[in-house]
């Protein structure tokens, strides 16, 4: 029986691609692996151009590594995939895609109720008269 984990990854470069594509990567697995471990494996062994946000807090709180796993938003650092399974990794669906699994989350503010994006897009323009 094939114990490999099959990872289907969303790839998209807005500057050069018309449409996104999905790539399938086989990752060898003796035991279950976290999604973050799978992504790192793919970048280190198959394709160094795969773009994703790595972990920061490493305890499931900072949300830097949030992506869509099998259609639902999940933290890559704390989501486990069993051997022999297939997993689909896509960017978060509510934000514009910058590249592959990296989205533009703008500048966030957290309140007690929810997190809001208060400034979308890229640079904050702060030009002064030169």
């Amino acid at each position: 029986m094939n114990d490999n984990i099959e990872v289907k990854v969303f790839r998209f470069d807005p500057e050069n691609d018309d449409r996104p594509r999905y790539e399938t990567h086989e990752v060898p697995a003796d035991e279950p692996k976290s999604v973050r471990t799978l992504l790192r494996y793919i970048r280190e062994n198959h394709d160094p151009t795969l773009a994703f946000r790595d972990h920061i807090c490493f305890k499931g709180t900072c949300s830097n590594c949030l992506i869509n796993v099998n259609g639902k938003s999940a933290r890559a650092c704390s989501t486990r995939v069993d051997t022999g399974e297939t997993v689909v990794l896509e960017p978060l669906s509510v934000h514009p895609v910058i590249k592959d699994l990296v989205v533009d989350r703008g500048v966030k503010v957290k309140t007690d109720e929810a997190t809001f994006t208060i400034k979308e897009g890229t640079t904050i323009d702060i030009d002064r008269e030169e």
Partner: peptide, 11 residues
Amino acid sequence: MIHDTGRFNIE
């Protein structure tokens, strides 16, 4: 040596 992948080039 890196690839020139345009935006968000982690390499």
